[in-house]
Amino acid sequence: HMTFVALYDYVASGETDLSFKKGERLQIVNNTEGDWWLAHSLTTGRTGYISSNYVAPSD
């Protein structure tokens, strides 16, 4: 899985979204569905959809 880092804080707007904080590391589970990616937070252990605009590759 690809690992990304959050560029900004994000508060989930629905049950399927994932809230995260700036600097949080996220593993991308599925990024084939446009701008919203299914991600797993390595910080909180939660999984949900994130906006690809809010993250950048961590490598």
Rank of each mutant, 00 (worst) to 15 (best):
T44P: 00
I28W: 02
N53M: 14
T44M: 03
S19T: 09
S58N: 09
E15K: 11
K22H: 04
L18I: 07
A39C: 04
Y10R: 05
Y10L: 03
T43S: 11
S51I: 09
F4K: 01
S13I: 14
D35C: 12
K21V: 10
F20R: 00
V11D: 12
Y49G: 01
V55H: 03
D9R: 00
G14T: 13
D9A: 04
Q27C: 15
I50L: 06
W37S: 01
Q27H: 11
V55W: 06
T44W: 03
S51R: 15
F20H: 01
L42K: 04
R46Y: 07
M2D: 08
E15L: 12
N53E: 13
Y8G: 06
P57L: 12
V29D: 05
L7E: 04
S41M: 01
V11P: 04
I50S: 00
E15Y: 08
E24M: 01
E33W: 08
S52C: 12
Q27L: 14
R46D: 07
L26K: 00
F20A: 01
R46I: 07
E33C: 13
H40N: 06
T3H: 10
P57T: 08
E24K: 01
I28A: 11
Y49P: 00
Q27Y: 14
N53K: 15
L26G: 04
H40Y: 14
L38W: 09
P57Q: 10
G48Y: 03
F4Y: 15
Y8E: 09
E33N: 14
V5C: 05
Q27I: 15
T32C: 13
H40R: 14
G34P: 12
S51E: 06
V11K: 08
Y54I: 06
G14Q: 14
T44H: 02
P57I: 11
S52K: 15
Q27V: 15
H40I: 15
T43P: 01
W36M: 13
S51T: 07
V11Y: 09
A56N: 06
K22S: 06
A39Y: 04
T47C: 11
T43E: 14
L38D: 13
V55D: 02
G34V: 08
T44K: 00
S51V: 05
T44Q: 03
Q27S: 08
L7N: 03
L38P: 01
D59H: 13
N31C: 14
L38C: 11
Y54W: 09
I50N: 01
A39G: 04
G23C: 07
L38G: 00
L7A: 03
E24I: 05
L18P: 05
V29N: 05
L42V: 07
S41W: 01
Q27D: 07
G48S: 01
N53D: 12
T44C: 03
G34C: 08
G48R: 00
A6R: 00
G34T: 09
Q27M: 13
N30D: 14
T32N: 09
T3D: 07
L7I: 08
H40Q: 12
K21Y: 07
T47E: 07
L38S: 03
N53L: 14
T32E: 10
S41K: 00
G14Y: 11
G45F: 05
A12Y: 02
S58C: 14
L42F: 08
N30M: 10
S58A: 15
G14D: 10
R25C: 14
S41R: 00
L18N: 01
G14W: 11
S52A: 13
D59P: 14
Y49L: 08
T16K: 14
T43R: 07
D35R: 08
T43C: 10
E15P: 14
N31R: 13
S51W: 15
A12H: 04
K21W: 05
V29A: 06
D35Q: 11
G48H: 03
V29Q: 08
E33D: 14
T3I: 15
K22T: 06
V29L: 15
W37C: 04
V5T: 08
T43K: 07
D35K: 11
W36A: 08
Y49R: 05
K21M: 10
N53C: 15
E33G: 12
D17K: 10
G14R: 15
T3A: 06
R46M: 13
E33Q: 14
T47Q: 08
L18V: 04
S13C: 14
N31K: 14
L18H: 02
T3P: 05
R46V: 06
N53W: 15
T32I: 10
F20E: 01
S13H: 12
L18W: 03
T47A: 05
R46A: 09
S58G: 10
D59M: 12
M2S: 09
L18D: 01
T16C: 15
Q27F: 13
N31M: 15
T3Y: 14
K22R: 08
G23H: 04
F20W: 01
G48W: 03
I50H: 00
D35H: 11
S58L: 15
A12L: 02
Y8A: 09
Y49A: 02
E24Q: 02
W36K: 14
L7T: 05
Y8R: 11
S52L: 10
M2K: 12
Y10N: 05
F20V: 07
D9G: 06
L42E: 06
N31S: 13
R46K: 14
T16R: 13
G14I: 13
F4A: 04
D35W: 07
Y10V: 08
G34Q: 10
A39K: 00
G34R: 08
S19N: 05
Y10P: 00
H40S: 07
G34N: 08
N53P: 07
V55Y: 05
S52H: 07
V29T: 06
S52R: 12
G14L: 11
S52Y: 07
E33P: 06
T47F: 10
A12R: 04
Y10M: 05
Y8F: 12
P57F: 11
G23E: 02
L7Q: 05
D9E: 05
H1T: 13
T16D: 12
A39R: 00
Y10G: 02
V29H: 15
A12P: 04
L7C: 09
S13V: 14
S51L: 15
S51Y: 15
W36Y: 13
I50K: 00
V5I: 14
G45V: 02
F20M: 04
H40K: 15
I50G: 00
H40G: 01
H40M: 15
N30S: 14
I28S: 04
S19W: 04
T43I: 08
G14S: 14
